Lab assay of single mutants.
Amino acid sequence: GKELVLALYDYQEKSPREVTMKKGDILTLLNSTNKDWWKVEVKATANDKTYERQGFVPAAYVKKL
């Protein structure tokens, strides 16, 4: 199945390749080969529509579930 990670801290994206997350968010882990930056998929809701974004977050800010 898919691997999930838990956001340990809030993170505000600093570039278009990154994604914003809030502490407590559960994210889908896409790639953890880089030890510093993990690629995740974030589900977000805006205007009653759910959309998914993929991007990088600092590996130290998340932990595998």
Score class of each variant (00 low, 15 high):
G1Y: 14
G1K: 13
G1I: 12
E3Y: 12
E3Q: 14
E3S: 11
E3D: 11
L4A: 06
V5T: 02
A7W: 02
A7P: 00
L8M: 08
Y9A: 10
D10Y: 04
D10V: 02
D10I: 01
Q12M: 13
Q12V: 15
Q12H: 14
E13R: 13
E13L: 06
K14G: 07
K14I: 05
P16I: 10
R17N: 13
R17L: 13
E18L: 05
V19R: 00
T20M: 04
M21G: 00
K22M: 08
K22C: 09
K23C: 06
K23E: 06
G24K: 02
D25I: 03
I26Y: 06
I26P: 04
I26D: 00
L27N: 01
T28A: 09
L30P: 00
L30E: 02
N31T: 07
N31H: 06
S32Q: 13
T33M: 11
T33A: 12
K35Q: 09
K35W: 06
D36I: 13
D36M: 12
D36F: 15
W37P: 01
W37R: 02
W37H: 02
W38I: 04
K39R: 11
K39Q: 12
V40C: 03
E41G: 13
E41K: 08
V42K: 15
V42R: 13
V42E: 03
V42T: 15
K43N: 11
K43M: 14
K43S: 13
T45E: 11
N47Y: 11
N47S: 09
N47G: 15
D48M: 08
K49T: 12
K49L: 13
T50R: 09
Y51D: 09
Y51H: 09
E52S: 14
R53Q: 07
R53A: 08
R53G: 05
R53V: 08
R53F: 06
G55E: 02
F56P: 01
F56I: 06
V57H: 01
V57M: 00
V57R: 01
P58F: 05
P58N: 04
A59W: 02
A59V: 05
A60M: 12
Y61Q: 05
Y61A: 11
V62I: 08
V62P: 01
L65I: 15
L65K: 03
L65N: 03
